[in-house]
Simulated scan of single mutants.
Amino acid sequence: MAGRTNVERGRDVRARLLEAARELIGEVGWSGVSTRVLAERAGVRYGLVHYHFESLQALLRQATLEAMSGMLDETAGLLTEAASPADGVEALLSELDRYNGSDPASLLFIEGYLAATRDAELLEGLSEIVKGFRTALATSLADAGHPSADAAASLIAALFDGFVLHKGLDPELSAARIAPLLRTLTSSEPIEAIEPNGAQP
């Protein structure tokens, strides 16, 4: 069998570096990843890191954005498969139950959000990914006749983030505990306004 071309070898090296970056961000944190440790984890020569990426920061940024984009695309697909937005949102919540707040995927998200406060390019990329997810959710809700689809989508997306964060603090937290309440947010029935003092108008 003919040997691989330089282009194929280059793709393989980049893929290994990105995979190693995703693993290490979750294990040692964004700032704990060094070029040398990354190269060792990927099983490549030290110099190849900067040959394929302009900087370590650029590599970590791409690894994080690709991971988050893939995970959100995967979960957003549950919306299109569900019989209703309520069923889809509940399926999304149940999918999040496999994360406990301290697993590598959860930590990658957390580290990515923190790093974005200091990295304008990462912030822009993450914003676009989250915006895309919210748009897909809002469209699903609007098609079902939800009276405040955009606001509900923003609230649900934020709830999902908080759910993963809080699971790291409360192992007893589960999708089953909050799914019934979450369903009320996806209802197409208008929610009655509440006065500031808690009284009904």
Rank of each mutant, 00 (worst) to 15 (best):
T75D: 08
A76C: 07
A76E: 10
A76N: 10
L79N: 10
E81S: 08
E81A: 13
A82M: 13
S84R: 14
P85Q: 09
P85H: 07
A86L: 08
G88T: 09
G88A: 13
E90V: 14
E90S: 15
E90Q: 15
L92W: 12
L92S: 12
L92P: 11
S94V: 14
E95W: 05
E95F: 04
L96M: 11
L96I: 01
R98Y: 00
R98M: 08
Y99W: 14
Y99C: 05
N100L: 05
N100F: 02
S102R: 03
P104K: 02
P104I: 09
P104A: 07
P104G: 08
A105T: 12
A105L: 12
L107V: 15
L107N: 01
L108S: 00
L108R: 03
I110C: 03
E111G: 01
G112E: 03
L114A: 14
A115V: 06
A115Q: 06
A116Y: 00
A116D: 06
A116K: 00
T117I: 05
R118S: 15
D119T: 05
A120R: 06
E121L: 13
L122G: 00
L122I: 03
L123I: 06
E124Q: 06
E124H: 01
S127C: 08
I129S: 10
V130Y: 14
K131G: 10
K131M: 09
G132D: 11
T135W: 04
T135N: 07
A136K: 11
L137Q: 09
A138P: 03
A138R: 02
A138G: 04
T139I: 14
L141Q: 02
L141R: 03
A142W: 13
A142M: 11
A144N: 12
A144M: 10
A144P: 08
G145C: 10
H146D: 01
S148R: 07
D150Q: 15
D150C: 10
